[in-house]
Design a binder for these strands. Structure first.
Lengths: 229, 229
DNA sequence: CGGGTAATTGACCCGGGTCAACAGCAGTGG
DNA sequence: CCACTGCTGTTGACCCGGGTCAATTACCCG
């Protein structure tokens, strides 16, 4: 039942944003809760001098901040990586959703908590790991998240990020990402060509990345209320 | 009225944790929402090989994750920096709090959103800024947060972090933090001796740090329901 | 086939890490 | 009152992971 009311809302206001365009920009007033239905997007922050940091990726099923509209303005931008289809849920609809069902509210809190956990993991990733471990870690995370929403097929996922995207997300330069990806390939940990990523032995990749999936909290029932699963 | 019911809850189960002890450890099941009443604490994550990343600091008034008990286990630890007094709010009380008042619920969401925003800012800070900018940025943030809860007095705040804490929070080594603090002192941007931090000209420090306070969302009313203000 | 984006390579450099010694100072116990 | 211990801060010498700059080389798409 909750499933259905959510589905309904995500069908109402759908818009499409072209690849490499912004969904919403830092400084703007958030109008709605965005749900990514299709495609990839990212949050990013930009320093006055142009340096750019991607602070999270959105894959299908992800919410961009339940309740953002509580805040007066965006403190970061959301950009489309590929062309994305995005559902906008108005504050009223969103409130209604939470009023109607305790379970949906729980699921939304769950999603927020996981989102926060991912963000902290990124901080630790960038702060402590070497380039090699760091990229391996990010790939593990993305792979598992895609798998969780049914977007993997025998160790293979669609992977639209450029090396520049990876660089902006890991705090490295594109040149160094390039070299590091080559090492990962050479070591047989990944296959990455064009838009396809293959991780032949996830356990091994997790190992070198010191990846512990606990922060994704994949076992909880709450996740089954995600927009896509 | 909401103010009072919250105050009441934070008086009920208070415990004290000594400096440098853990409040709760990664892997444990979260039992309650923790509110820091007094002292400083931090969240941190530790890699299997010992590298440690502090992913946030808690100062008086801060909530450690509304609703954490939704999750099955902690994906990080919370450690006391100084001796801290912490109120534990049980899941039931917490739920009651939210059921009783829409405004409190909003304030809690506000707090979660700000917490997430801070976490993202840290990611960007570590990913993009130089050591000098990075430390300056962290000091700006902490100063403003302390000010917001009334813990500053003419440009001066109590500052119990060691250089090792700063190192773990910024992804630098303690040695380099030491050298960078000396530079900041030499440039007249900070005075830091013992447990006292003085920022004679905050605007100037913000400038070199490229610090934009928007992510703290200080202007919102919601913050006035924090445990300490 | 032309134009643009993304990936790759090479040469060189620097911010910050590492290692190791030492200084300052608070607490503690004799 | 002083020696002892342990933590925090400081300094110096040396090194390396990753950045910078600049030129190519795929690749994709119309």
């Amino acid at each position: 039942m909750e499933r259905e009311s959510l589905d309904q809302l995500t069908r109402r206001n759908v818009r499409t944003v072209e690849a490499r365009r912004d969904v919403i920009r830092e400084g703007e007033r958030p109008r709605a809760v965005n749900v990514v239905l299709e495609g990839w997007a990212c949050r990013y922050k930009q320093l006055p001098d142009g340096r750019r940091q991607v602070v999270s990726f959105f894959v299908p099923g992800d919410f961009c901040d339940a309740n953002v509209f509580i805040l007066k303005q965006m403190d970061h931008s959301i950009g489309a990586i590929t062309r994305v289809r995005i559902a906008e849920i108005t504050p009223e609809d969103f409130q209604g959703l939470m009023d109607r069902s305790q379970r949906v509210t729980q699921a939304l809190w769950w999603h927020e908590l996981v989102d926060a956990a991912i963000s902290r993991e990124w901080t630790a990733n960038i702060g402590q790991r070497t380039a090699y471990e760091r990229i391996a870690h990010l790939l593990c995370e993305l792979f598992l998240r895609l798998e969780a929403v049914g977007l993997s097929r025998n160790c293979k996922v669609d992977f639209p990020l450029t090396q520049t995207d990876l660089a902006d997300a890991t705090g490295l330069t594109a040149v160094h990402v390039n070299r590091t990806l080559q090492e990962l390939r050479r070591d047989g940990l990944i296959e990455l060509h064009g838009r396809v990523l293959i991780i032949p032995d996830l356990a091994r990749l997790q190992d070198v990345a010191m990846f512990n999936s606990n922060y994704l909290h994949l076992e909880h029932e709450g996740r089954h209320l995600d927009a896509n699963d």
